[in-house]
């Protein structure tokens, strides 16, 4: 469980799984939109969709978990604007991580092709088969993804720059080394 000063292992595990997944997906997404598609690499679309759905599940799990076990408050920054910026960035992460897979799913489902989880389980389609929906959803998906990529870079830079134990707290749970 989280405490007022510590991240519990569940929050940290979800955070780092999502970090790995998001960075991998940004790279994979950038690659598949540029590659020459053929039989040998068509499976990458399936991987992209499957990981995207898993990341969506993780962000929902994270939101639920933080309702059950509230995370510690952000560590105070050197300037008030930095606190505000960090708060906006964190909220933006949640919004983007919810919306990006939703719009990816809408675009995929609107194409008329089955959306499969790990090439096995069909995800029900709840949108009409429509090129307008498909094009619109993928456009939003693409724009939001670029915003997310920028946010990830800012987040990593800020985490490295801050020397107040913020990064350590997300890595090990506590901002301070345990005193034996």
């Amino acid at each position: 469980m989280n405490t007022e000063t510590r991240y519990g292992w569940v929050s940290r595990l979800i955070h780092w799984l999502m970090a790995l997944g998001v960075i991998a997906m940004l790279g994979l997404g950038a690659y598949i939109v540029r590659m020459e598609v053929g039989f040998s690499n068509l499976w990458l679309f399936g991987v992209h969709k499957s990981i995207g759905m898993m990341l969506f599940a993780l962000i929902i799990l994270r939101l639920i978990w933080h309702r059950i076990s509230a995370p510690p408050a952000p560590m105070p920054a050197e300037a008030a604007w930095q606190d505000s910026a960090a708060r906006i960035a964190h909220r933006s992460f949640y919004v983007l991580l919810v919306l990006i897979p939703i719009f990816g799913y809408i675009g995929s489902a609107a194409s008329g092709l089955d959306v499969l989880l790990f090439e096995r389980w069909k995800v029900p389609s709840v949108v009409p088969v429509s090129e307008a929906w498909e094009d619109g959803a993928f456009l939003v998906h693409s724009i939001l993804t670029k915003l997310l990529a920028a946010l990830v870079l800012i987040h990593i830079a800020a985490a490295i720059k801050r020397r107040d134990g913020t990064l350590r707290r997300m890595l090990l749970g506590s901002a301070e080394a345990r005193v034996a």
Partner: peptide, 13 residues
């Protein structure tokens, strides 16, 4: 010769 192509070919697009 692969399922997605069959679905795509028969589909509205």
């Amino acid at each position: 010769n692969f399922p997605f192509a069959t679905q795509a070919m028969r589909g509205p697009k």
